[in-house]
């Protein structure tokens, strides 16, 4: 199932301006990631589409991040990464 969100031409500076190597501080990176991804959480959590794979492809592409950075860095709750209140 295709992703209803077009991640190709989004503005990734919300992440790339705050999450930088070689340190990749977890707090900065994960907060930035959540700020970017949370508006699309419903589509990202729907694993019957390819939204999350697509989004990570572009995040890694634009930010030149090592594979798995956010998966390895970010942990919140039992259920997942808690999004900031709107």
């Amino acid at each position: 199932k295709p992703c209803p969100v077009n991640f190709e031409f989004m503005n990734y500076t919300i992440i790339t301006s705050r999450c930088k190597g070689p340190q990749y501080p977890a707090k900065l990176c994960c907060d930035a990631f959540k700020d970017f991804a949370c508006p699309y959480s419903d589509d990202l959590n729907d694993l019957s589409n390819d939204c999350s794979s697509t989004m990570f492809s572009y995040i890694n592409l634009y930010g030149n991040y090592p594979p798995g950075l956010f998966a390895n860095l970010c942990r919140d709750d039992k259920i997942g990464l808690i999004c900031p209140a709107l």
């Binding site: 990202l44 959590n45 999350s52 798995g68 998966a71 919140d76 990464l81």
Partner: peptide, 20 residues
């Protein structure tokens, strides 16, 4: 209130299945 979250299932798509 029901809070939004990004599931670990979605986050796991950040992992690549190679380089072990």
């Amino acid at each position: 209130t029901n809070r939004r979250y990004i599931s670990y299932g979605a986050l796991s798509k950040n992992n690549v299945p190679c380089s072990r």
